[in-house]
């Protein structure tokens, strides 16, 4: 049994199908990149994984659990924007990652002191210690996303969902964020789903790259059919497994 199990998902808004017959099995610790044309339903698929929406048909299970009906702690998320709380300082945002599931959403007494210490540790690790007391609005886009990812991770989700997390960043910051994300992933071995518009980014970061597209197409009524997973690339080693095979082949031949 796979860790994340997507079975025959259909999703329609009104009478308009967006996704159809989506099936997927993901092993624990895999990094899945999702690409596809704009408006084909990538974010919709992520919302289904997040349980922000319930699919019209089909089920999504994590670790064999019952399909969720609302977002919860086992699924973490970072959106392109609005993923941190603007009224809390950077440090408070990190503490919130641990404290929000508690009764009043806060730590008290000794627990608070420890939580603050842990938050400072986290901030050190994600390179935001020097802005711990600043408000997110004063941070650059890259730093805000780093904060958002750090906040999501301290809640220890089973899977992490990223919807174009670096879409609004400049190329240089993007590269820095790739390193940051790879490093965190190496430490946590988290299962990650990331929607991106950047193919290169998808292959660089992902173990697999899923392509969403329509398989059926009605020229008169383009909205008649939904999209599904049309390609499922193995993206390890930069997405070029064939070269490995070829080389082995050649080596064998010459031997």
């Amino acid at each position: 049994m796979s860790f994340v199990e997507v079975r025959n998902i259909f999703q329609s808004y009104g009478s308009r199908p967006i996704l159809e017959r989506v099936n997927l099995d993901v092993a624990k610790g895999d990094f899945i990149s999702i690409v596809g044309a704009s408006g084909c339903g990538k974010s919709t698929f992520l919302r289904l994984l997040l349980a922000q929406e319930v699919p019209t048909r089909g089920t999504i299970r994590i670790d064999g659990n019952d399909p969720a009906v609302e977002p919860g702690r086992e699924r973490g998320v970072v959106f392109q924007r609005y993923s941190v709380f603007p009224h809390m300082s950077v440090r408070e945002n990190i503490v919130a990652g641990e404290s929000f599931h508690r009764c009043w959403g806060r730590f008290y007494g000794a627990g608070k002191k420890q939580a603050l210490d842990r938050a400072d540790e986290t901030l050190n690790r994600i390179g935001l210690a020097h802005v711990a007391d600043a408000y997110p609005a004063t941070l650059s886009g890259g730093m805000q996303q780093r904060l958002a990812i750090g906040q999501a991770l301290v809640a220890r989700p089973r899977i992490l969902l990223l919807d174009e997390p670096f879409g609004a960043l400049d190329p240089g910051t993007r590269l820095a964020m790739h390193d940051f994300l790879m490093e965190l992933r190496a430490q946590t071995r988290m299962t990650v789903f990331m929607v991106t518009h950047d193919l290169e980014e998808g292959f660089k970061l992902g173990d697999r790259v899923l392509v969403f597209d329509k398989t059926r197409w009605d020229a008169d009524y383009p909205d008649n059919y939904g999209a599904t997973i049309t390609y499922d690339f193995d993206a390890r080693n930069g997405g070029i497994p064939f070269q490995d095979i070829m080389e082995e082949h050649n080596v064998l031949l010459s031997a």
């Binding site: 922000q52 998320v77 609005y82 919130a96 599931h101 508690r102 009043w104 959403g105 999501a152 809640a155």
Partner: peptide, 15 residues
């Protein structure tokens, strides 16, 4: 997004 983010951190409606 912000509300959903809070949900994924385990926040109840009251929190």
């Amino acid at each position: 997004e912000m509300i959903v983010k809070a949900e994924t951190l385990g926040a109840s409606s009251a929190v």
